[in-house]
Design a protein around this nucleic acid. Structure first.
Lengths: 214, 214, 214, 214
DNA sequence: GATGAATGAGGATTCATTCAT
DNA sequence: TATGAATGAATCCTCATTCAT
């Protein structure tokens, strides 16, 4: 398995959440602490006391802002999936309707999301299973939409003769997987910019779907 | 994220371990039960009682065979990494020394391992972080070796003019990530054979590294 | 072995702690319960559940006040040794600087401490070994001080010609031992007052060191 | 409390049992191991596994020789009390019927027993309470006999005008206590011989009961 | 909002003991 | 006699959560 073989789940060390200026106070410090701990140790490996301690708050305080530990995770999962989905949508809206450029825009958004918010991506992906079905449902829907979107782009590219790949679904799975993993190894300290990685992965995606040179 | 968006961590439902005729008795049923539960719920989400119940033994019986819950995970991680490493090594030994064929052999081994033993692969990858450093160390070493091996093949292909890719390390990361994710969605009931998937991913890998048609 | 040969470790039946009006609530009831149980059954023979049940709280409540079962014992050991040390110090401060009177004051304090707080004395002495070294250290220091103090008094008495005994250290050991044991058999219901016992032991101590009649 | 303030329950480090050439094999190694562990950590602080490990035997093997963990302790308590009682009896049989000499013989036997077999003495005294009443009964009876015997000697000495002490029972309690404690601090490595200690304690005992110089 | 104390359920692990071999 | 595997109960302690303040 070809990424820096360390004994950590995320290479990055500080929690980062989008929409930074959102809520303030205990709500925010709890969410930040939970993000880091869930990313590093997993939901099951993190106790409410761990979160409270890291947030410099009493455990009881957490319950003034979240109905339960699961709802803290649910909130992170929601934020992660919504940010991801929004990046994808915006990327598509700003691009020419060519399958090649649309695929590039999606991969760019997908990869940069995972490099910009690695902890959030790891939590949203790897801890989703820890949520009860009802709390997981909204995220699953967004996930399905993104997947479907990319599949439609690839299939349109095939119909238009711009792409050439035998099993489009497998190609989409492979392209998605590439990006997912970035969250685990990427760190700004690696010397590579997010853009460098994103553009490299765009090229990989093009190659996978057999995109004709433009 | 482009795989079947379900609320499960592995598509497959039954635990499978290589070297099946190995040990017998409580050791084996505990390991089987732990494999399934760790894969489905994660290490932190699984209690010793859960394992014992699933294995139909008393919690105390587990401790006659493993020094601790962590050692059960460590054993699964070890088995997973060793099987993976062995498949890779054997694949390379049986192939012509052409980078193109060597890469294909590695990807085939990597992907088929993840499709043949999805739970083992998920546990070995996603729960490695739950192990104390000393128990994780052997697996990390094997991991580093596999990564290094694939990187050397790609770089040799580049030097020989058979491959063409700007950032070999990123290519290796992408190829590895593709395969990792297979463990989460693959199931024989999907209608695709392991070979179908493996061959598709070999083609993707070739495209990523820009392999010249042979 | 010459004390009432019963099958009990302390003759007394109710736990008593000095500085009674100190802390209130669960902290206090836990400490009282632990004192009685440790005295009667020993540290190893008492479970956290035993203590909690006797204190009429949940086991978890104990951990809101003490970091561990060992810390409950440590607290009792500390209280016991500090009370003992303080009695000794105060006794010395209130007495003429004659070795004969100083020895009497110390023995009186030593014996009355063991008769007034028999359970505390038994726990502080007989269960000290159950503490990890770091928790036992403060008690050991106080113990060494008391011993040294009595030895110095005896040696000064010898130099001044008031006492006459061949091995002062053995005399001190014997005098200390006499008092220690009082905690096991003394009870107010025996018909003897604490003072009666204390004065008898003062006489024994004088005889042991060969004190000249004043 | 005037003995070497260490964090150990017995100064001595090796287990010693009288009637050495008695039984052989596992019975003996288990008893030796239990003696040391019970002396150092107490009955409640020692597990059957601890004993078995120290004896280099499987836990199950212990049950081929003793019906239960409690019976191992009972055996040690029995051996200790019988040896103690026998020493006392023999000492009395070999001495002139003078109270002064009889008291000396008893103290000599009492003290030397506690210095010769410190671990056995500590276990027989400090762990007696851990035994169920029926297993403790024989030891308690021997104990009562020894106490009674010494009391009778002292009272006879009083009637004969050889001794002079106000409360004979307290004197007996004090003399017994002195000797008991020797087991905790005595070690041959201290530089004092058993005889030195015993003779010093004989002198202390004489002084306590106010024995007239012979 | 925040908290300190409390709790019942459950966490991993060890207990003394049994039994087939 | 000795043992390896097994067990049900109990070990200490932590869990997520509640509630009066």
């Amino acid at each position: 398995m070809p990424e820096p073989a360390q004994h950590r789940r995320v290479a990055v060390e500080k929690a980062r959440l989008p929409d930074a200026p959102a809520r303030r106070g205990a709500y925010r410090v709890v969410l930040d602490a939970a993000l880091r701990l869930f990313a590093e140790r997993g939901y099951g490996g993190t106790s409410v006391r761990d979160i409270a301690t890291a947030a410099d708050v009493q455990p009881a305080t957490l319950y003034a802002h979240f109905p339960s530990k699961a709802h803290v995770l649910a909130e992170l999962v929601r934020i992660g999936h919504e940010a991801h989905h929004q990046r994808m949508r915006e990327a598509l809206l700003e691009v020419q309707p060519s399958p090649r450029l649309q695929l590039a825009a999606m991969v760019r958004a997908h990869v940069s999301m995972h490099a910009d918010y690695p902890m959030l991506a790891v939590v949203a992906n790897a801890e989703l299973h820890a949520l009860p079905a009802d709390l997981a449902a909204p995220a699953l829907q967004l996930r399905r939409q993104s997947e479907q979107l990319m599949l439609e782009i690839v299939e349109r590219g095939l119909r238009m003769g711009e792409f050439s790949v035998a099993q489009p679904w497998l190609a989409v799975a492979a392209i998605g997987a590439m990006g997912l993993r970035v969250a685990h190894w990427y760190t700004p300290e690696s010397g590579m910019s997010v853009d460098t990685v994103a553009e490299a992965y765009v090229e990989f995606a093009w190659r996978i779907v057999g995109a004709k040179a433009s």
